[in-house]
Design a protein around this nucleic acid. Sequence first.
DNA 1: GATTAATCGAGACGGTACGTCCAGTCTTGGA
DNA 2: TCCAAGACTGGACGTACCGTCTCGATTAATC
Lengths: 192, 192, 192, 192
Amino acid sequence: MSGRGRGAVRSEVARVAVLQATAAQLAERGWDQLTIEGIAAAAGVGKPTIYRWWPSKSALIADALLEGILTPPSPVPGDTGDLRVDLVAWLDELLRLSADPESTALTRSLIAAAAEDEVVGRRLDAADPTSRVLTERLTRAHERGELAASASVEMIVDALIGAFVLRVLRRAVHAPGEAEALVETVLADQLG
Amino acid sequence: MSGRGRGAVRSEVARVAVLQATAAQLAERGWDQLTIEGIAAAAGVGKPTIYRWWPSKSALIADALLEGILTPPSPVPGDTGDLRVDLVAWLDELLRLSADPESTALTRSLIAAAAEDEVVGRRLDAADPTSRVLTERLTRAHERGELAASASVEMIVDALIGAFVLRVLRRAVHAPGEAEALVETVLADQLG
Amino acid sequence: MSGRGRGAVRSEVARVAVLQATAAQLAERGWDQLTIEGIAAAAGVGKPTIYRWWPSKSALIADALLEGILTPPSPVPGDTGDLRVDLVAWLDELLRLSADPESTALTRSLIAAAAEDEVVGRRLDAADPTSRVLTERLTRAHERGELAASASVEMIVDALIGAFVLRVLRRAVHAPGEAEALVETVLADQLG
Amino acid sequence: MSGRGRGAVRSEVARVAVLQATAAQLAERGWDQLTIEGIAAAAGVGKPTIYRWWPSKSALIADALLEGILTPPSPVPGDTGDLRVDLVAWLDELLRLSADPESTALTRSLIAAAAEDEVVGRRLDAADPTSRVLTERLTRAHERGELAASASVEMIVDALIGAFVLRVLRRAVHAPGEAEALVETVLADQLG
DNA sequence: GATTAATCGAGACGGTACGTCCAGTCTTGGA
DNA sequence: TCCAAGACTGGACGTACCGTCTCGATTAATC
């Protein structure tokens, strides 16, 4: 029950400053230009303090994700009772955001980080608020019978989020009707 | 009649060697560990020769994509006449491949490259053979009436490929029935 | 008696342009910063044209010395009949020049070139106008009996020019009386 | 009480290794072929460690001179009481050395360095052991009255060392009687 | 309250790769 | 056959970060 020894304890101030600096630098400069040195300087912290607690820049991002301070801008689907309408509105807003290079900078950085690092990849999935809010809305719909019992919430989420990710990667412009076509494709006659 | 063309001409040998070395190194070491120095050494070329013709490592990848020497392993959908069966088989094979970290190394590297660089992102979309073969199969199905006239081939492709990309990023293991569930979700009652 | 073959003959224009560019660049930028590329550009000549005729930048300087287009500013000793007075005046002027960093730039470049390259070293000795005019004045004095028969003109020249070179190397400022002291030391009672 | 001295301290081991490698490489390869990269490798040190503390290769040489680890081979004049004999013997030995290209390699490199760089030039003068030992012998002679009171030790040194430098630059071979002629010229009737 | 060990900031260290300049060679097309 | 132009391989440049290390100062649990 005792501690693991005498001596000073880990500085919470430093920990938080590092994670926030990580988030800020990742959004600002992207995964490739993200440097431990830069994070240390921005956090007002020595490099060894970072290396003492995190083995790599991936680990910093993974931690920042856990902390919830690394969330790209993301709309929340409404709940008017009409799933189709709610999803189209939500996806339209999401694609509108994705057409703005600034808004997608963090998203792209996170994709790059996930592609490069396994831990980030596994964690991003759970921490991403976009897929979480979508899953929640769909689960509610499923329970309420707005969605056919046979429908798979997980697969619908993957299809919609996946299509969004592709559009971010290809720097697609927002085309009108796109959201509707996508929702139509994925939901089709799965509505209850 | 031609231009001012005095002086030695660009070496085709060097150009091809560089692009092939780029492809090999990207598959081997990934986007982050990809170095111009390493490419130059592997290609038996001086660094300035690379910098003379390509401004960045992204440009190298974009060019290698154009050249078609940067294609991740990708199954080809069969054409038994039964679209559902063909797609499930194809997707099952694709997801099986994606469960093997070695097979997805190049895919992940390309995703990272696309996330970091706009030109790669735009070009990857067109150059990726996986989405191309899928598009071809679906277009044929559409024309034959295997698919409802109202269905959007583009959206189906985005949904399926997008879901695949997500699985690669999250290092998902291959679950049985997954391919079927995904195809069911996306095609639903869109079959003709 | 005819030429040595068909084809164009060496361009005298190019040869002279290269040597003059060499001289200009050496004075301007010094031995270390002297580049074949820079000389070629300044002379409006291709690099291979230089390498075809000269094996190294030392050879260029050696040739420019032969051509006499690489001579640092140098006073000429008067001949009033009084050797001591003439030498003091000449040396005083020389040391005054050597106190100005601009005037000694070429001298220092030539010393560096001579130190680095044997051919330049051997040739500089003969081509340097400063020691040549001094030798001439002293030889005349010797013949006229202004100088003791036992005196060695060569050694006097070496002592005076050598002391001058040391002053250039050590960036000495011109001290009044210096020239006189040096002449006195070297000539002492060698006057006729 | 002292300054703000936080952080790791400069490594003396690295400092000395760099200066010794500088001296070794300069003697081996000469000024022109002296590379920071080569020094770093020979010293077992990273390039940035050199650039952190020295702005240029000239500065390295200037520091090595200060440290006294950059001294060309140099005889010491005897003190038999007969200045003329001592100087002739000493100069003869010096010129014999200067006829051997290996022995003069370091001397020529230092001359080149002095010609290229002002700081080296100023410092070389004070650090060169050859002129120092000569100055000492002559000063002693002056004090003892072996040399005329009116004689200038400084000028005698400059004349002798200067003549030696010229011979090194012109790659002169050692001619018998040369030392005697030079001493005769410079000392003449200045003996006490 | 003194001891003591782990922390902190700062920053030097040996390295790797960067992107550039120039060396010296080779190739092309025009004179 | 020589010339200009310029691409080629290659090596060193000086810089930015990497990840490790050593400092002196600070902090808090243990004695």
